[in-house]
Write a protein that binds this DNA or RNA. Structure first.
Length: 223
DNA sequence: TGCCAGGCCGGGT
DNA sequence: ACCCGGCATGGC
């Protein structure tokens, strides 16, 4: 029953892991930091997120109660280096208020929910889209959901595993229906895709020699 | 110097 | 159901 796609996805994972080794994601020390980083990194270079996280750390604001009580303008100043700081400050505020209303401020209670029920609820929170929700579930909650991002889509498209119309849920389904629901592997796979996406599979110039070179790839189509 | 970065929302068709 | 402008900093 192992389809060709399943075999390819597994082999791509093996190739990436062999080339780069474990990535040790998410680059954060606590679940709280993961969630904050997941919101701050939306359409933003991680380097800029690190500055904002460092600001928050210095201010003692990597803490939900502190974040909840911090005035909007003060929080926005700390978030500034991450870009779109008014938007992100609002999203952090919306999330923390929801966390209190829904789970009395407890991440432990939140993550005690069944995976897909929690995913649906997270998607109702303004500012939490699919990728952010999945990153929170996987990297902060340790729940086996696959995270898709722009790198993932581009890599799979170039290697002919999805077509240009494939949306987020299509791509997520491709992984989840062809691989075991294994949290450590989902964790590592996404991190490896981001790494190869940053270092080789660039928008332009076209991807250069990389660990996935032996897999059939399209070097002409846009993006 | 413009393009890009680990998206998402809201309004308009 | 799509499509698109807005959000904004910092690196290359």
């Amino acid at each position: 029953m192992t389809s060709r796609t399943a075999k390819t996805l597994r082999e791509m994972y093996d190739a990436l892991l062999a080339a780069y080794g474990p990535q040790g994601w998410w680059p954060a020390q606590t679940a709280t930091e993961v969630i904050i980083g997941a919101i701050l990194t939306q359409n933003t270079a991680w380097r800029n997120v690190e500055r904002a996280i460092e600001n928050l750390r210095q201010a003692g604001a990597l803490d939900w109660a502190v974040l909840r009580d911090l005035p909007f303008e003060d929080l926005a100043e700390l978030v500034r280096p991450a870009g779109t700081f008014n938007v992100k400050t609002r999203r952090l505020k919306v999330f923390v208020n929801w966390l209190w209303e829904r789970f009395d401020g407890s991440l432990e209670r939140m993550f005690a929910m069944p995976l897909y029920a929690l995913r649906e609820e997270l998607l109702e929170v303004s500012g939490i889209g699919r990728e952010t929700a999945d990153a929170i579930l996987l990297y902060a909650g340790g729940l086996p959901t696959f995270v898709v991002d722009a790198y993932t889509a581009r890599i799979l498209r170039r290697h002919g595993l999805i077509d240009t119309e494939a949306g987020y849920e299509d791509i997520k389904e491709l992984f989840e229906s062809n691989l075991p629901a294994d949290t450590p592997m989902f964790n590592e796979y996404h991190a490896l895709l981001v790494h190869v996406g940053k270092t080789h599979c660039r928008p332009r110039p076209r991807c250069s020699a990389c660990p996935l070179e032996r897999f059939p790839h399209d070097v002409e189509t846009a993006d």
